[in-house]
Design a protein around this nucleic acid. Structure first.
Lengths: 231, 231
DNA sequence: AAACACCACATTGTCTACAATTACATTGAT
DNA sequence: ATCAATGTAATTGTAGACAATGTGGTGTTT
């Protein structure tokens, strides 16, 4: 989707970084599991030097937590942390939608329209096409973020937060989504962008993300009630 | 300047990271300058291993840029990049002000009030107390960010963007500020927070940062015109 | 004189070995 | 039996040596 795998990275350290990110995000190294340097270095046929460099970078992405002289563990994403991330997304992607109105090209708008039409067809045909929807959801948001033309915004959302969100998706596949509602909201956002109404686009995007967040918050409340009942 | 490794951080790699950040931000290693691994490792009395680990982390903070097999250079902050950062700040700190209204304690509000009163006195006494104002400006924003109680927001603003902003301050000391106006805006923001008016606080904070950004944008335009005239 | 090819040098990337710190288990005392 | 202390084993942190790549200069050719 985003990263072209055309050419290998020139250095082992960078290759490792990408592979480890994939392994962590996909759940191959489950949340909370320990990352043994010697073990993983042997597995990837590299020495501990490049591996440690990769770990430093991955720590910067908040995918692992390291304690000196103790080791690294894969982070466990609590619903509380996820809610925090959604608050950040609300602010940043709202800004992205605003800026996109000012910079997006007609071609890009056409591409977005095509994307949403495809989504609509898929949802109508395959009722509850969950995975596809989630995938496409990222696509839609990604294109708008890119259209903001603000490289800082793009890197924060697509490099820093993206992996954490993907990881959460793997961790809790039971997350209920709302494909139809979300699709409608996507269409409304696109309409605002087409009309170059920056303020409206921002507001709609923020509301869109806020609703996703509230879904998670409700889940969290349910979980807590269940825990209380069990007591 | 003494670089003796005290018992602050438990590991040399982490010590190095902090010292290098300080050196880069303060301009000791000027923008665009090359970072020679062997040279700096010798200077700090460490081997290249820990140094490289530190460089990886600092690269993640976007303070340096590394090219494989070529080396690392200190980033040069263009006005364009700074404007991008301010757009991000506008979104994030707006959200922070909003959340702060919901979570800030009365003690914290009192502390903020005291802070602003001190700023006011200083500005009245020492006209154009530039450095202090900038310093205090960070204080005010920092306290509000902390009061948002959103750890992701806090780390993004205070860990990721903060160093870049400090670096810019060192790089272009000629930046004209507007202490009196800014102070008034700070007071207005604080009033909104005191009244727990989240939406107003967010709007005022965003406008406040937007005005700082516009100051930079105007400078940029002036520079370009000057460049055109010289041609 | 300009452009290209080649070689030597310097710098970065990686590996192996060693030192330092922590975790766990065993042992002893209360 | 529980708790504390200590020693051992395993893991992480660091250092120095070696390999791979990029840079710059020199010399030749057109």
């Amino acid at each position: 989707m985003i990263h072209s795998i055309e050419i290998k990275e020139p250095t082992k350290s960078e290759n490792l970084t990408e592979q480890l990110i994939e392994a962590i995000v996909s759940g191959e190294y489950p949340p909370g599991s320990k990352i043994s340097e010697t073990e993983i270095a042997r597995f990837f046929n590299v020495s501990r030097g490049p591996l440690r460099e990769a770990l430093m970078r991955i720590e910067g992405l908040n995918l692992i937590e390291r304690v000196p002289h103790v080791g690294a563990r894969v982070v466990t994403l609590s619903p509380e942390k996820l809610i925090e991330i959604y608050a950040v997304r609300e602010a940043l992607e709202g800004m992205a939608a605003n800026l996109a109105c000012k910079h997006i090209t007609d071609q890009e708008i056409a591409a977005l329209e095509k994307l949403l039409t495809q989504h609509k067809e898929h949802i109508e045909q395959v009722d509850g096409a969950y995975y596809f929807h989630q995938h496409g959801d990222f696509d839609f948001h990604y294109q708008i973020i890119k259209a903001s033309r603000n490289s800082k915004l793009i890197s924060l959302l697509c490099d820093e937060l993206y992996h954490l969100l993907r990881m959460y998706r793997y961790q809790s596949p039971s997350t209920q989504s709302r494909p139809t509602h979300a699709l409608n909201e996507h269409f409304n956002i696109l309409t605002a962008i087409k009309e170059r109404d920056a303020e409206l686009a921002e507001m709609l995007m923020r509301r869109h993300i806020k609703r996703s967040r509230e879904l998670i918050e409700n889940q969290l409340i349910e979980e807590k009630e269940k825990a209380n009942d069990a007591r």
